[in-house]
Write a protein that binds this DNA or RNA. Structure first.
Length: 106
DNA sequence: TTTATGGCTGTCA
DNA sequence: ATGACAGCCATAA
């Protein structure tokens, strides 16, 4: 566990319900520009006790990434739809659901 | 130390 | 629009 991981977890924990963020976006916000892959790894090993909204992190195409070993991506989609995020052909409309940390939503 | 794999992404043909 | 490629980095073997 290092500061980078904490930064990643901190960013993820700030994503509000009904919104999503991309791995690259989280990486940048955590001060790890270009290290999107590291974000995915960090989340994959994050302890459940942190209760992070990991399901709100998807890939740059607006779709949930398929896991190689698990089926969590299935539950991930359910959790998102449960929060109001709508899928169209397996993808999310990032224009509308992507988290905008500093935006004026009015 | 080298290789392979993993919840990615931007660029280029 | 779509697919191939090359960077990015942590871990495990």
């Amino acid at each position: 566990m290092n500061s980078s991981y904490r930064a990643i977890y901190a960013v993820v924990s700030d994503i509000p319900p009904g919104n999503v963020a991309t791995y690259g976006q989280v990486a940048s916000l955590a001060g790890l520009h270009g290290q999107a892959r590291r974000v995915g790894y960090a989340l994959s090993v994050s302890p459940d006790s942190l209760e992070l909204p990991w399901h709100r992190v998807i890939n740059a195409r607006g779709a949930v990434s398929a896991r190689t070993r698990t089926k969590l991506h299935v539950m991930q989609r359910q959790l998102l739809e449960q929060e109001g995020v709508k899928f169209f052909c397996g993808k999310v409309d990032l224009q509308r659901f992507q988290w905008a940390p500093l935006s004026c939503s009015s």
